[in-house]
Simulated scan of single mutants.
Amino acid sequence: MARQLSFDLPVRTALGRADFFVSSANATAVAMIEGWRTWPARKLVLVGPRGAGKTHLAHVWAAQSGARIIPARDVAAADIPALAEGPVAVEDCDTIAGDRAAEDALFHLHNLALAEGQSLLFTATAAPNHWPLALPDLASRMQGTPTVQIAPPDDELLMAVMMKLFSDRQLSPAPQVLPYLTRRIDRSFDAARDIVERLDAAALEHRRPINTTLARDLLDNDDT
């Protein structure tokens, strides 16, 4: 069978509240985001593995609160007083550990935003007590921030995540594909993202529909 070149086409990620699937693995996190007006001390750390939906929930919160979203690595170059004038979501905070300029900026943003009566959302892959921060004052403030965790996905959530990933790529797999993949892949968000990307590429390259036969061929090839 003739093959065709595969291209990385734009992926349109849906980030609205209606696009976020709630299961037992993330229900507490969703409830905390939706109840943001009652956060203790007006701040929250949202923790979960890559692909768990932290960015999606940050956008849900931003839509509700009017918050700006900024990657932690960009805080050092930001106008902190201007940023602190409204609610702020700072993403991937654990990735700046050891970067003194970024840590100093996050510390000042934290203090100024709260002094202005604003709310703060921080996202990370680990709880703050596992961030190897160099600035003790920032570490103490992060460790004193309420934390909510997104748990590893259950079957229901894993299927919903894959369904959304396919939808973001404008793909419609056969109905049996999602249950089949859920039984075969590792129970992680990374595994879900990886298999969707690979099925997309394989379907395009080989001009085949995304069905259980294609999924089986791909996964069986991994086992050999």
Results as ranks from 00 to 15, higher is better:
D194N: 13
R3W: 11
D137Y: 06
A63S: 15
R141C: 03
A124H: 02
C93D: 01
A25N: 09
N221W: 00
A27G: 10
M32R: 15
A2R: 15
I195H: 00
L121R: 08
A76P: 05
M159S: 10
T95Q: 11
A174E: 14
H59K: 14
F107D: 04
A2Y: 09
G35R: 14
L121K: 05
R187P: 00
A84D: 04
F189D: 03
H108I: 01
A84R: 00
H130C: 11
D220R: 07
Y180V: 05
P136W: 10
E91S: 12
R183V: 00
D19F: 02
G53C: 04
P179C: 12
T13F: 06
K54T: 11
A89M: 02
S24G: 08
R183Y: 00
R3A: 08
S172K: 14
V30L: 13
V75D: 02
A174D: 15
A18M: 06
M142G: 14
T38L: 09
K54E: 03
G53L: 04
A215S: 13
P71R: 05
D190S: 13
D223M: 06
S167T: 14
A126N: 02
D155N: 13
R141Q: 11
S6A: 13
D190Y: 04
M163F: 08
P146A: 15
E197Y: 04
A102G: 10
P146D: 12
D154F: 07
A82G: 11
V11I: 14
L15N: 09
T212R: 03
L135C: 11
A2I: 09
L181C: 05
R100D: 15
N111G: 10
A77G: 05
V22I: 15
D220N: 13
N26T: 09
L109I: 07
L109A: 08
R73S: 15
G53D: 00
